[in-house]
């Protein structure tokens, strides 16, 4: 649709400006906020650390042969028995905190991203179908969404994890269950507006199949508001997973996310050994703030009400 429009514009004006494409305008508007660009850069850095943790971490924190109990609870900057430096201290098992945080980011971001993608696919598809078909389907779907959103996320996750027990798959399932409703509601809202537009009517007039209209015509035009919801919900998912893991009902001890690292340091806090909990928390905080900064800017840029 937009591509076709651009072609007619290009035909009418002999020298189209390169900045005029919607994507370029979007990029330059986003870049106008230094804070958002900073957030994006920090987030990309964190994502790289998470992805490449096994190659860039100073040690493998879960290689038991390299752990020495005598290295336990060393403060930041201390030397280990074999001459390495614990830049961020070590935990009770003699694990290098910096390496543990890098691996923890890997788990936390992985779980957050995975649940966001699944919730997006599931919630998005349901919202799209509810808006397209309307009527009874729409009423039932939206009633379920309303009921679910009236309960706080932590309570829903608590119910599910109390029922299901611990595990990576289980916490992803819980996070998807908590979050799909946000996607469904957002997609439905924009799809209801798009559905009434001429191009959908035209597609219907051409007797295209329902599936083709929904996925090729309706869906692409419902995506922009979703991008904002995705960023906000990824941050929520990461925070919620950390909270649940901290409470001991999220990830099992074999998948040490940031939340588990923080929980692990809790008992040493009282004796002033702050670093075991402090640094994983800082990593978590920086991640969430970076994502939120990007999300805030995206909301401003993509919201048609704010456009000049």
């Amino acid at each position: 649709m937009t591509a076709a429009l651009d072609e007619t514009v290009a035909a009418a004006e002999p020298a189209p400006l390169r900045e005029a494409t919607p994507f370029r305008r979007f990029v330059s508007e986003f870049a106008a906020s230094k804070l958002a660009v900073g957030g994006l850069v920090v987030f990309l850095g964190i994502a790289c650390v998470a992805i490449f943790a096994p190659w860039i971490a100073p040690t493998d924190p879960y290689d038991l042969t390299r752990l020495d109990i005598l290295d336990g609870r060393q403060p930041p900057g201390a030397q280990s028995m074999d001459g390495r430096t614990f830049w961020l201290g070590s935990d009770d098992q003699g694990r290098d905190m910096l390496s543990a945080i890098m691996y923890g980011l890997r788990t936390s971001l992985g779980v957050g991203a995975m649940s966001a993608v699944l919730a997006l696919l599931f919630g998005g598809a349901i919202g799209l179908l509810a808006a397209y078909f309307g009527g009874r389907v729409d009423t039932i779907v939206m009633r379920v969404v309303d009921i679910q959103l009236s309960f706080p996320a932590i309570l829903v996750a608590l119910i599910l994890l109390a029922v299901l027990g611990q595990g990576v798959g289980k916490i992803i399932f819980a996070l998807v269950t908590v979050q799909w409703a946000y996607y469904a509601r957002t997609v439905r809202g924009s799809a209801l507006v798009e559905r009434r537009k001429e191009y959908i009517e035209a597609a219907r007039g051409l007797a295209l199949s329902h599936a083709r209209i929904v996925f090729r015509h309706l869906m692409p035009n419902c995506l922009p508001p979703l991008i904002v919801v995705v960023t906000v919900q990824v941050a929520h998912a990461i925070a919620l997973e950390a909270t649940l893991s901290f409470l001991g009902i999220g990830l099992p001890i074999t998948e040490p996310s940031l939340g588990l690292l923080i929980a692990n340091g809790f008992e040493y806090m009282m004796s002033g050994k702050y670093w075991i909990s402090f640094f994983p928390g800082v990593a978590l905080l920086i991640t969430i703030v970076a994502i939120n900064l990007v999300g805030d800017r995206l909301r401003d840029v993509l919201n048609p009400r704010y456009q000049k």
């Binding site: 939340g259 002033g272 909990s277 978590l284 905080l285």
Partner: peptide, 19 residues
Amino acid sequence: FSLPTFWVGLMLILLFAVQ
């Protein structure tokens, strides 16, 4: 809005109770 509640709790303990 961004601060993880449980971590802030730990920091409050660290600051006001321990330190």
